[in-house]
Design a protein around this nucleic acid. Structure first.
Lengths: 202, 202
DNA sequence: GTCTATATCATGATAGAC
DNA sequence: GTCTATCATGATATAGAC
């Protein structure tokens, strides 16, 4: 590793932290520079504009949010195996990186067209097709009830991700508890698996 | 209505639109003034600071997100009735105001402590207690399986709200379709009711 | 109450020395 | 490559005329 590379790395780590925390509008180049232990001038030397730096961070984050799911959806296996895999692996990602979903979804909403187009590619379509076939197979076998595969996938993603985004609102609903919420999130992995399987079984 | 009131009203409507769309950091006083058909000076005459104007908008939004649910949770009735009521009424709110959940949750996440404390009151605790009792009653009767009431409530809220926040990411997963997504949202009300009831029944 | 003009400040970005 | 100093812009907020 050259020293260039090391500085660039520090910048990327600092930028990720600040952008994830504050979003594009709330992030300050000054703060990113501080976190990286350098000054603004150097920051602009590596990434000319805030926009370019943001793009670097955002594309990694978006990829982290979708690629794993795409791979799993296409994997050979029964529907039940796919469901368990998605829940396990996706939970791992968001537990390790709790601010990721909020960041990606907030920024995606601010500028949907800008990013969606480049990510709706053949991979996405193939992945979903594979999942749809798995679902239809089980319906035909009679092991699960008639259900729209898109709604099912949306339900799974909703149940996994929402608690990480909606945490403060859920705390309002429950009435306080901060420690308990963490415990709930930990128990949630198995809870969701059972919940979904019950919901679809015949 | 006096003329004062009318101008204040115009400001509030404009501010709601801009804040909901762009968030606190992205919103500009200039843009709010334009939308209201006035100038920045007058805007500051009514609401001295951006912060105060934001507070006025945000408190209404947060209230819209939680009060209805609190009321329903406390209403007399069976668990099934409560579930249907929450889904129906909450769906109505977000369908009428699709940007509401995104706005509230994004801002809440940026500054959790600032707002949560004042909303975790006796109402919240009573509401959730009432729901918890309803759930326990059904478990005791043997009509539903053993389940954590907090997880169940979180699941309901997740299934209702997430699609409105996570729409762009779901479009990536599905591979495009914009019109279809609206159709999915419309069909979702009944879908969720069935999904949840199947998930909890014994 | 409403407008125009202006003060003040913070931010993204650049220039230039080392 | 890295730093300091500075520019240019745009945003909140205020002052003052009408």
């Amino acid at each position: 590793m050259t020293k260039d590379n090391s500085t660039e790395q520090k910048i990327l780590e600092a930028a990720e932290e600040v952008f994830h925390e504050k979003g594009y509008d709330g992030a300050r180049m000054q703060e990113i520079a501080q976190h990286a232990g350098i000054n603004k001038g150097l920051l602009h030397y590596y990434f000319q504009t805030k926009d370019k730096l943001f793009e670097a961070i955002f594309s990694v984050a978006l990829n982290r949010m979708v690629s794993r799911v795409h791979i799993i959806l296409e994997t050979e296996g029964t529907l039940e195996e796919k469901i368990d895999l998605i829940i396990d692996q996706y939970m791992n990602i968001v537990l390790k990186n709790p601010s990721l979903p909020r960041f990606v979804i907030t920024e995606l909403n601010k500028n949907p067209d800008r990013f969606i187009a480049r990510h709706i590619n053949k991979d996405a379509k193939n992945a979903f097709s594979a999942f749809l076939i798995s679902v239809q197979k089980e319906i035909d076998k009679g092991t699960i009830r008639q259900i729209d595969a898109r709604q099912l996938l949306m339900n799974m993603i909703s149940l996994i991700i929402f608690p990480f985004i909606g945490r403060p609102i859920m705390q309002v609903f429950f009435g306080a508890n901060n420690e308990e919420f963490k415990k709930l999130l930990g128990e949630r992995r198995e809870h969701i698996k059972i919940f979904i399987k019950n919901a679809i079984k015949k």
